[in-house]
């Protein structure tokens, strides 16, 4: 169980990290909401795998970290596709 502060920190880090930024970018590449959410979710899975943990220790990445990255990735993908709908005619 993580504390509220820990939770907010993890969410913020995901938003400013790969799930948030790449999620929005990928979402902007499609008009399909489901595809955008799936792409964002995939980034959410991959990001902790690629960037989680550290180079010097072998601490397992927690389930909460994965879950938060996936949720943020999905939401970012949806935001991205909303931008596409609002700002592009193609």
């Amino acid at each position: 169980m993580i504390s509220t502060l820990d939770l907010l920190g993890t969410i913020g880090a995901s938003v400013l990290g790969l799930p948030g930024i790449l999620g929005v970018a990928l979402g902007m590449m499609t008009r399909n909401w489901i595809v955008a959410a799936v792409m964002g979710g995939i980034v959410g899975v991959i990001a902790p795998l690629l960037l989680g943990g550290s180079h010097s220790t072998h601490v397992a990445i927690s389930g909460a970290e994965y879950a938060i990255a996936i949720v943020v990735g999905i939401l970012a993908g949806l935001v991205g596709t909303a931008v596409r709908h609002k700002g592009a005619s193609i």
């Binding site: 920190g9 913020g12 880090a13 995901s14 990290g17 790969l18 180079h55």
Partner: peptide
Amino acid sequence: VPHEWQYKMKAKIMAVK
């Protein structure tokens, strides 16, 4: 402060306390 980006951001956000 961690060196890794996501943990660094997390530490910075938590430092608001």
